[in-house]
Design a protein around this nucleic acid. Structure first.
Length: 104
DNA sequence: GGACTGACCAACC
DNA sequence: AGGTTGGCCAGTC
């Protein structure tokens, strides 16, 4: 697999509980500002043990097509707060995405 | 081998 | 403020 995909998996796996990241953020952190769709591809393969439910859209909406609602429950279990719009609170977005860790 | 699509994002109108 | 298009890259037809 290309290093990009590996980095995506490593990045998502390094997302702390209660924190979410957008596809674009990951793509940018990996050096592909417009390759958000590739990140989506990486998520589509659905590796085991990967907390990909923490990966949402730039607007905070839950990504992942049919499993979106399921993911919302997983995020809630992670301690992520949801807005009445069904989106994740931007405060939960990972700030220090370059390091893959947040400093709350 | 060529073209389209796809779990998106940002810019443009 | 809202809708549409372009763009990146890999996988599939």
């Amino acid at each position: 697999m290309n290093p990009f995909f590996q980095e995506v998996y490593a990045f998502v796996a390094g997302i702390p509980a209660g924190r979410v990241v957008s596809y674009g953020q990951i793509a940018r952190a990996l050096g592909r500002p417009r390759a958000a769709r590739e990140v989506g591809w990486a998520m589509r393969v659905c590796p085991e043990g990967l907390p990909w439910h923490r990966v949402v859209m730039a607007d905070g909406q839950i990504a992942g097509g049919e499993w979106a609602e399921l993911r919302r429950a997983l995020l809630a279990a992670d301690g992520v707060a949801f807005l009445p719009d069904g989106r994740v609170d931007k405060s939960h977005f990972l700030k220090n995405e370059k390091s893959g860790e947040d400093c709350v």
